[in-house]
Amino acid sequence: MRSWRDEKTVQELTNRLNRIEGQIRGIKRMIEEGVYCDDILNQISSAQSALNGVAKLLLEKHMRFCIKEQIIAGDDKVIDELMNTIFRMMNK
């Protein structure tokens, strides 16, 4: 359950993910139609970049609200969770 209740952000994330979903369908179609590999790879790079943007926005909200609330409540274990999440994101 998320700690933040920002419906504007929920809508922004949903809109971004809908666009990414469309990009992925387009990539699939390109592969099926035999489009030049470099063009497909460029579209994949674009989709990955868009997904990274979603992750960054979600990470910001997670840190500003979820993590902050848990630290205030005295749960220092959440720092380890956050570090693991950031390391996972950096390794992709």
Rank of each mutant, 00 (worst) to 15 (best):
residue 1 M to R: 13
residue 2 R to I: 13
residue 3 S to Y: 13
residue 5 R to T: 11
residue 5 R to S: 09
residue 6 D to P: 06
residue 6 D to H: 15
residue 6 D to C: 07
residue 7 E to M: 07
residue 8 K to T: 15
residue 9 T to Q: 14
residue 10 V to D: 14
residue 10 V to T: 15
residue 11 Q to T: 12
residue 11 Q to D: 13
residue 11 Q to E: 12
residue 11 Q to P: 00
residue 13 L to H: 01
residue 13 L to K: 02
residue 14 T to D: 02
residue 14 T to W: 05
residue 14 T to G: 01
residue 14 T to S: 13
residue 14 T to Y: 07
residue 15 N to A: 11
residue 15 N to M: 04
residue 15 N to K: 07
residue 16 R to F: 00
residue 16 R to I: 03
residue 17 L to H: 03
residue 18 N to R: 11
residue 18 N to G: 03
residue 19 R to D: 03
residue 20 I to C: 05
residue 23 Q to Y: 01
residue 23 Q to H: 09
residue 24 I to K: 08
residue 25 R to K: 15
residue 25 R to S: 05
residue 25 R to Y: 06
residue 26 G to H: 05
residue 26 G to C: 04
residue 27 I to D: 02
residue 27 I to Q: 04
residue 27 I to V: 11
residue 27 I to L: 05
residue 28 K to D: 09
residue 29 R to P: 02
residue 29 R to D: 14
residue 29 R to N: 10
residue 29 R to H: 12
residue 30 M to E: 02
residue 30 M to R: 09
residue 30 M to C: 01
residue 31 I to A: 10
residue 31 I to K: 03
residue 31 I to Q: 08
residue 32 E to R: 13
residue 33 E to N: 14
residue 33 E to R: 10
residue 34 G to P: 06
residue 35 V to Q: 07
residue 35 V to D: 01
residue 37 C to D: 10
residue 37 C to R: 03
residue 38 D to F: 11
residue 38 D to Q: 09
residue 39 D to R: 05
residue 40 I to T: 08
residue 41 L to D: 12
residue 44 I to T: 07
residue 45 S to N: 14
residue 45 S to I: 07
residue 46 S to V: 06
residue 46 S to Y: 12
residue 47 A to W: 07
residue 47 A to L: 03
residue 48 Q to C: 05
residue 49 S to T: 11
residue 49 S to R: 11
residue 51 L to Y: 07
residue 51 L to A: 12
residue 51 L to M: 14
residue 54 V to P: 11
residue 54 V to R: 03
residue 54 V to S: 03
residue 55 A to I: 02
residue 56 K to R: 10
residue 56 K to S: 14
residue 57 L to P: 01
residue 58 L to S: 15
residue 58 L to K: 10
residue 59 L to E: 00
residue 59 L to K: 11
residue 60 E to G: 14
residue 60 E to K: 15
residue 61 K to T: 08
residue 61 K to D: 04
residue 62 H to M: 11
residue 62 H to Q: 07
residue 62 H to G: 06
residue 63 M to K: 00
residue 63 M to G: 00
residue 63 M to H: 01
residue 63 M to N: 07
residue 63 M to E: 04
residue 65 F to V: 13
residue 66 C to V: 05
residue 66 C to K: 10
residue 66 C to I: 05
residue 66 C to D: 12
residue 66 C to Q: 06
residue 67 I to S: 03
residue 67 I to E: 06
residue 69 E to I: 09
residue 69 E to P: 13
residue 70 Q to K: 13
residue 71 I to D: 07
residue 72 I to K: 14
residue 73 A to R: 11
residue 74 G to L: 01
residue 74 G to H: 09
residue 76 D to A: 08
residue 76 D to M: 14
residue 76 D to C: 07
residue 78 V to L: 04
residue 78 V to N: 08
residue 78 V to A: 10
residue 80 D to W: 02
residue 80 D to T: 08
residue 81 E to C: 01
residue 81 E to T: 09
residue 82 L to F: 12
residue 83 M to C: 03
residue 83 M to G: 00
residue 83 M to N: 05
residue 84 N to K: 15
residue 84 N to W: 00
residue 84 N to T: 12
residue 85 T to Q: 10
residue 85 T to D: 03
residue 85 T to S: 13
residue 86 I to M: 02
residue 87 F to D: 07
residue 88 R to G: 00
residue 88 R to Y: 02
residue 88 R to L: 05
residue 89 M to N: 02
residue 90 M to G: 03
residue 90 M to I: 12
residue 90 M to V: 04
residue 90 M to Q: 10
residue 91 N to S: 12
residue 91 N to E: 13
residue 92 K to N: 13
